[in-house]
Each structure stands twice: as C-alpha cells, then as structure tokens.
Design a protein around this nucleic acid. Structure first.
Lengths: 196, 196
DNA sequence: CCAGTAAGCGGAGTGGCGTTCCGCTATGAC
DNA sequence: GTCATAGCGGAACGCCACTCCGCTTACTGG
C-alpha cells in the first residue's frame, strides 16, 4: 500500500513538494464541501476553495470518483475491517450482519448525496462503485455465509444484491424527517430471517 | 377529468389545432425516447423527434416533471385503482399489499431511470414526486392499515416510508442481471410481518 | 549558488445541456 | 379576405465538466 514513490519497477521519482501540497489542499477542500454541498459540488468550487486551478484537480483526480474514493478511503477501510471483528464479538452471525450493515448505513447516510451517486448505474462513477464493491462485498459475503451456515437466514440472497439494496435504501435519507433509512434497512434484514 | 377547454369559469377558448397536434407529438416522442434513452433524455432530442422547436416543449410542459407525469399518468392511475380491487380479491390484506406493491415495482423497473429521478429529493422533480405521492400514498395507506387491522404486520411503519423504500429499491434494476429489485422488495415486505 | 530541465500549474477555451426570449407564422373569428 | 393573436422556432445565454498549452516553479548536477 501507499506507493509514495511508485514501488513497481523502482524507477519513478518522488512527487514535487507543491504537487503533494496541492493534493492535500484538494482533499481538505473536497471533504469540507462534500459535507456542506454534497458530493456533486461543482469542480470549480473545490478548486477555488483549495486555491488551485481547475486543471490541477483533474491532474490529481482524473474523475470525480477518484476524488470521492480518496476522501472516504479511511472510513470505507474501517468499515471493511470491522466485519470480521463483529463476527467474533456478536452473539450470532445474524446479529453481526445487522450490526455491520448498520455501520455501513451510518456511513452512507451521513455523506450527503453519496448514496445517489454510488448506485445510479451512472458510468462516470463506475470506479467508485467498483471500489466499494471490491472492498465491502467480500466482508458482506462472509457475514452472510456465516448466518446461512448457522441456519438463521434464507440462503437465496446474494451479497451483491443485499449491498445494492441497502445502498439504495440510504438514498434521500438526509434532511428528511419522514424517511428513516435505518428503519427500512432493519426491515430488510428482518426479512432475511427464515420464516418459521 | 379531461378539461379540454378549461371547465372552471367557462371562459377559456379551445386550444388551436396545431397546438393540440404538437402536444400529441411531444407525448409520443417523449414516450418513445424515455424507453430507449431514459427519462433524462435531453430536451433537444425530444423536441427534434417531435419535429418542434425547443421553445414549444416548454410551453406545453414547463418542467420535465410535467412531461413525465403526462406520459405516465394512465399507468399511475391504473395502479392506484388496482389497490381496492386487490384488497377484495386477495386472501389476506398482507397478500393484497404484496401484490399491489408488485404492480408498482413492475411499473417502476420498466421505466428506465424513473426511479432515480423520482426519489433523489431533487427539487426540479418535486412536482413528479408530489404527484406520485398524492395518487398512490392513500392507496398504500389503506392496504397497510387493513393488514395492521388484521394483525398480520407490525404497526410502526408509515406508508410514506414504505413507498419511498420500495421506490429506492427499484433504482438501477434495469439491465442489471445481478440486481433484482423485485426480490429485495419481497424481502422488505416479508420483514413487515409480525415476528412470532 | 547557478543554470537547465521537466513536472506541474492555471485558466482560457470548447462543447453539451437546460432554459429564456422575441420576431415571425399559421390559425381561427368575423 | 382580413385581422388579431396564440403559438412557434431556434438563436442566445448561463452553467458546468473537461481539455490544452504557454508559463512557473521545484528539484538536479555542476
């Protein structure tokens, strides 16, 4: 991880100091604006707040997806790592699944507009979609498999489908007192339980 | 229904023949393009296919929401009217609810991009959102209430929340063999059932 | 400390899209 | 046939993402 100088082949030079500084500024600016104006805030605004030109933002983050990934990487990573831990510390696999999904939902609903952009099938954000899937799908699959193995839930549900469904339910949850994504996700997870 | 000449007050003149013709063409063009290119197809394209200028489209349908509503009004109406009928012909209220939700889901998933636009909290589409809610929420509420009264489902779920949840689950269901909105909605509805 | 070099910068420019506006045209009344 | 006007079309404008290239600035070797 953290190539820094480009590990493969060993050739590449370290990045120039101003370049590193700008990248940092851009991440800070983006993080701040994502909170107040949502992840679809105009590129110009991000560049302006970071005190750089619009060209610079594209050099560091070719697509908006790249920028979003960079901003949220730590949190996604943390969520992914929480999976196995929850499986060990929870009473049952189904409980662990529920708690892990809650983490994911908490993350999504607090990121203004992220859920929309993550799910729309929008090709511009394919990289974002892929990143989330690569990182979180295996974790979800593991929890799901454990719950199935324990005989707690039905076995005909796919982890991809579940993640997409949960993501979708998180859309539009901010600033709407009448819509509580958490409650609906709970319902969905409850629906997984084997009928008896 | 069908004002035609503007019933209230009785004053207004009938619309000119070319205006009626253009409105018709626009509806046809929009309906066709919505299928192939989604409901967010560029306004210019719709105008072009209808053989009119872009100004004309705005005169007949001031916002995109108005156009979408006009295109799908019949189908939404039919869905709304199916509610009470299902309640009578189904074995239980919960079954009726499930079948009605299925109708709604079938409608949404076959309309490329409609679910996205319906839910995003996007202010441009407020009229669309409102229309769907006005028309379908009472129906949903009735079915929900009947199922609660019959003691089949939990009573802490709001019809608004349910409709939004179902709508959200329908996002991105087209052209994706790995994501079946119907199955997830089924799960959600199953989650409504009282545990026992 | 001083060139020389190229990595990196910025913002003007391009193109797509929604939306408005207004001079012109076709319609329907008389 | 004439006229008032509802209605038309598309040029024009503003907003935004994204590209491109002349200029600036950080690092390198002497």
């Amino acid at each position: 991880m953290n190539e820094g100088q480009g590990g493969a082949g060993g050739a590449a030079r370290p990045k120039r100091a101003d370049a590193r500084r700008n990248e940092e500024s851009l991440l800070d600016a983006a993080a701040a604006l994502f909170v107040t104006a949502g992840v679809e805030v105009p590129v110009r605004d991000i560049a302006a707040r970071a005190g750089v030109g619009t060209g610079t933002i594209y050099r560091h983050f070719p697509t908006r997806a790249d920028l979003i990934i960079a901003v949220y990487r730590h949190q996604v990573e943390a969520c992914a790592q929480a999976g196995p831990a929850l499986l060990e510390t929870s009473a049952t696999p189904h409980a662990a699944l529920g708690r892990w999904i809650n983490l994911f939902v908490d993350f999504l609903v607090t990121k203004h507009g992220l859920a929309v952009v993550l799910q729309s099938g929008n090709t511009d954000f394919e990289a974002l979609h892929t990143y989330f899937l690569d990182r979180l799908l295996p974790v979800c699959a593991e929890l799901l498999a454990a719950a199935v193995a324990a005989g707690e839930i039905r076995s005909d549900i796919d982890s991809y489908e579940l993640m997409r469904g949960v993501g979708n339910l998180c859309i539009g949850g901010d600033n709407n007192p009448r819509y509580d994504a958490r409650r609906l996700v709970e319902l969905l997870i409850a629906g997984l339980r084997l009928p008896r």
